[in-house]
């Protein structure tokens, strides 16, 4: 079955969507990502959608789901690279992707994740160990 690859980069997971998303593929990505967050203990997920010429309500919902699921597993999601025409269309469609962090490109998305991580209480502290 066709799958979208998920790369592990340090504490983060990077997904670059390079193909046209059909519904089953998007759902598989959602499952794979949440599993991967669990398996790797990743603290951030970066989804690069710069190659996507369309995000409709179904894909928007999947992106929202991924962010929500990752969040309850203690990982933050940043969506990067949205094309301007896609952004305009999403707002008119009525899907503002509330609750999803966004950044202009992968570099800025990484920086955003890093800054959010450093704002967290230190992971290595033994406060919760007992």
């Amino acid at each position: 079955m066709e799958r979208i690859p998920i790369l592990k980069m340090g504490r983060f997971l990077l997904v670059t969507i390079q193909v046209d998303l059909y519904d089953r593929l998007a759902l598989t990505l959602e499952e794979d990502l949440v599993q991967m967050v669990y398996d790797t203990g990743a603290s951030g997920v970066l989804i690069d959608i710069s190659a996507l010429s369309i995000v409709d309500s179904f894909m928007g919902r999947i992106i929202g789901n991924i962010a929500g699921m990752s969040s309850i597993m203690d990982a933050e999601t940043v969506v990067v690279g949205m094309q301007p025409a896609v952004a305009i269309t999403l707002i008119e469609l009525g899907l503002p992707l509330a609750g999803v962090h966004t950044a202009l490109n992968v570099e800025r998305g990484m920086a955003l994740l890093e800054s959010r991580m450093s704002a967290r209480p230190d992971d290595t502290s033994d406060a919760d160990d007992d």
Partner: peptide, 17 residues
């Protein structure tokens, strides 16, 4: 134009789905 194209294919996707 690209913005209208994107709006049109998004509407197409919603209705076709």
């Amino acid at each position: 134009g690209i913005v209208n194209q994107t709006k049109l294919i998004t509407a197409t996707s919603e209705i076709a789905r």
